[in-house]
Amino acid sequence: MISKLSLKTRNSLKGLLLVSPALFFFAVFVYRPLIHTAILSFHDWNMVSPTRLFVGWDNYLEMLENPALGKALQNSALYAVWLIGIIILLPILTTAGMTYVHNRVRKMFRVTLFSPTVVSLGIASVMWLWVFNPIGGLLGTIWEELGLAPLNWLSSPKTALVAIVIIVGWKAFGYNMLLLLAGLGGISGEVIDACKVDGADGFGLWLYVILPLLSPTIFFILISTLSMATEYVFTPIHVLTGGGPVNASTNIVFEIWRQAFRWFRVGYSSAIAIAVFLIFFVLMIFQMWLSEKVVSYDER
């Protein structure tokens, strides 16, 4: 029967058939929950009761007033700032440094610097807890040898957030570095030669030629780092601090979990989830707009 259709229709059907499993799973496990969450966000529900109470915008209004959520938002921004430093600026510098070392040494550095990426964040959290440990832990011992007062990194409100930044930074650093190295690899040697003929070299060459050429990659990792800074920190918070002490390390997506699975406030949790989604939606539109600009720049 299929052979009676025109070639064009047959091709369309084949294409649709090939992409249908992916579409099916995204529809059921990404877009359905998104809509479901939006509906739940207008209700009051404790996850077990058979009835849900429609409450209109109440959950959203509560978000504006709740101080714990304000703290979570503030922490999310802090996490983002720290992580932009550790997994964007530092990798940019390191990739630049990589061009000054011998080929073979660079390949070695590349392998070692990327290796934390393959360690589970859940396990890395436990591993770092031991590294941080004031008695017998690696950092704890170094701390002591330096003559500093013992510090319980994860149970002090002043340092818990920084400790989590260290864990996530350690894990994600190599990934961005590899993307940047790939971006550098895409720059033609002829361009560099031409600039040198024109008199640019050393630092100036980096600042005015290589960094601008690398900007598509940098924009991409900037956006993906913002999402990592939000998503990744969830795991060490969940494993180690539970958001504490006194909300010092919680972040916006951990509040989604805490409201739903600790306090069984599914409606309020859903409202936070929708707010997070909207923030990322704006970021995504921004990223698409940027990459469109970059494409037209390339074709010029």
Binding site: V19, A22, L23, F26, F29, V30, Y31, R32, P33, L34, H36, T37, L40, M47, I223, S227, T230, E231, F234, V253, F254, I256, W257, A260, V266, S269, S270, A273, I274, V276, F277, F280, F281, L283, M284, Q287
Partner: peptide
Amino acid sequence: YLCAATMFIPIQVIMVSNYLL
């Protein structure tokens, strides 16, 4: 685009609903 956009949806946004399912 609908497929690619899923990269930008944090798992925590949709996990509660998927758990309920």
